[in-house]
């Protein structure tokens, strides 16, 4: 299970061979068959014909998701060595380890579409590929580890549960596995906050401070408002996404308010109010300037996160080379 897998770079065309049908059937007809299949809730598999845009959109989304798992290890990893009890240390370490595992599943799912992991990693390190902006915020206190589990994983789960029904088979199946582990992650975060909220005044203040800092960035995780979301409409039509950003954000808010009340914490939104007519909470306005700045690279930790990933990759280069060299020698000896 822990065997290293180091691949030579494979040209993308050889990884996912295109179905030979397009050469017989015009693309327009293929596309309409494809859409019928999607509409009929049949999963699209790696060897099926798919529009280039669908493939591109999926590679972008899945690799972005994989990168988010990997970069997401950093803010939480920041507290592994300082976790306040051996039980908490064990749980946190297991959680961050899960995230590395999720990264692996997702890179594998994206590879079925013809883009190799090395290429995706290069895109992350060069800054060409994005990852979830939430991980550009710092973890300043132990309560932040609770808030990440509760809010960040909570928001991620909303997306991921939806993605268990996504139209691309390997992605949907990776998500089913991931969702099982993510719900444990959310519970561990909430459990940290339950303990803090029952604790000393300092601990309660620590929990409130974490909610104050993480609430709005968590809402931003659902992405731009539907009217400003460039990829949304097509993704919904292809059933890559099944619910819009704004729908998911609203469900998240509706669920989270009572959880905050149970903790005795106050959500930092003066406009938050239950609306009898809509049966939803009304709420304030996301600071989209901040959202766009963090995406542009101007968040509190963007530079640190990328520096940490680049350093790990560069420091590990000789390790990967040694593994490849040894594997080469070994296979030569076996052949001899």
């Amino acid at each position: 299970m822990y065997k290293i897998s180091l691949r030579e770079r494979v040209p993308s065309t050889t990884l996912a061979t295109r179905n030979t049908f397009p050469y017989i059937m015009p693309d327009s007809q293929q596309e309409s068959l494809f859409q019928q299949k999607v509409d009929a809730e049949q999963k699209i598999e790696p060897r099926d014909w798919m529009p280039d845009g669908y493939r591109k959109n999926l590679v972008r989304q899945i690799s972005q998701h994989a990168h988010s798992e990997i970069v997401g290890m950093l803010p939480e990893g920041n507290w592994i060595t300082r976790a306040p009890s051996l039980r908490r240390k064990t749980i946190l370490l297991a959680k961050v380890q899960d995230e590395a595992g999720h990264g692996l599943y997702l890179y594998s799912a994206a590879e079925t579409l013809g883009t190799g992991r090395d290429e995706m990693v290069d895109q992350l390190l060069s800054g060409a590929a994005k990852y979830s902006s939430i991980f550009n915020y710092p973890t300043l206190t132990w309560a932040d580890i609770g808030a990440i589990g509760w809010l960040v994983d909570g928001a991620a789960i909303m997306n991921q549960v939806m993605l268990c029904r996504t139209s691309y088979g390997p992605y949907a199946r990776a998500m089913v596995r991931i969702c099982k582990e993510e719900s444990f992650h959310q519970r561990q975060g909430y459990d940290i906050l339950i303990t803090l909220s029952k604790g000393t005044p300092e601990q309660k203040a620590m929990a409130q401070d974490a909610l104050d800092r993480w609430w709005w960035p968590s809402l931003m995780m659902f992405g731009p408002s539907d009217k400003d979301s460039p990829h949304s409409a097509q993704s919904l039509k292809w059933k890559i996404k099944r619910q819009s950003n704004d729908e998911l954000r609203q469900i998240f808010i509706d669920r989270t308010v009572s959880q905050a009340e149970f903790l005795g914490l106050k959500i930092p939104d003066p406009k938050l109010k239950w609306n009898e007519a809509t049966q939803h909470y009304d709420w304030g306005e996301i600071d989209w300037t901040e959202f766009n700045e963090v995406i542009r690279g101007n968040g509190p930790c963007n530079a640190e996160r990328m520096a940490a990933r680049r350093k790990a990759h560069a420091d590990g280069a000789w390790v990967r080379e040694a593994a490849l060299a040894y594997a080469g020698k070994k296979s030569k000896r076996n052949a001899a």
Partner: peptide, 24 residues
Amino acid sequence: SEWCGHGPVLEEDIAQANIALDLI
């Protein structure tokens, strides 16, 4: 556990975390 997030290759982040979990 200090390697978690900083390993030379993703599989080793997982392996080191696993070993750390056993030891702890």
